[in-house]
Amino acid sequence: MVNGESQLSGGATPRPPDHRPGTSGDAGPEIRDPQSKRAVIIRTRDLAKHYQMGEVITKALQGVTVELCRGEFICLMGPSGSGKTTFFNMIGGLDSPTSGRVFIDEVDVAQLSAIELAFLRCRKIGYIFQTYNLVQYMTCLENVTVPMAFAGVSGDEARDRGMELLELVGLKERWFHKPIELSGGQQQRTAIARSMANKPTTLLCDEPTGNLDLRTGAEIHDILKRLNTERNVTIICVTHDHRLIDMADRIVWIRDGRIERIADRSEVMVQTGAIEGQENE
């Protein structure tokens, strides 16, 4: 076992046949999944985003074209300032592009009104944040049922579903606790339950294990994997956690506002390290 080190081997692995190295000014590689004929759930075309701050124009994204399939487990990686946040916002319906298109379930996000966007976020997409973002003055159950309230689900049904979801993440006995009474891992699990409230087809995760230690992180990984395999939920994670990357189907590297590389999990070697002398996590 390597001491305290994780390795990600990049350049020495074989690349898929139709990958063209990105030249400056080009759009990133466009990948079609040759193996699985899965339906494409999120599609972007020449996605670009510029921020104007006074005189300076920051080009966060410069022409990203990509297709993400239903039921996939995708990890987004990249250094800070690479545009992965911006890309994440685009495909999550949280921001609109300056140019280019984003299609979520074949719906052009840029054409949607504010109410339709809210609908989208409510029903189609679930979000999990690094800082959990639970409502502090509500109990777990109430937190989980908030999206259901927005979806117009009646009180009783909402409660039942909420308890079901909490059971799914293993928090059934603590439904009445407030977030402040829960540990980080439990809060994140509540957040996951919340994100599944309206049975979305996609889960967007922003560093879900970023604030958690390795053991609690493992619980999160389990849940996410289960959701992905059992319920066919597309999971798109921005993460540095190698064990999440280990579970991914595809990995997307973003650098300087372009997709540097998209690779299948099989093409990438991920080593998740452990510390010698400690119980195996």
Binding site: F103, D105, E106, V107, D108, Q111, L112, I115, E116, A118, F119, L120, C122, Y137, M138, A149, F150, A151, G152
Partner: peptide, 26 residues
């Protein structure tokens, strides 16, 4: 290209709103 049909996007009833607000105020 499909469009989103916004069905059942409920406007939260005033009672529920007030409930939410009150717990927030507390």
């Amino acid at each position: 290209m499909k469009t989103v049909e916004v069905r059942d996007q409920v406007r939260l009833g005033l009672g529920k709103c007030i409930e939410l607000v009150l717990s927030g105020v507390r």
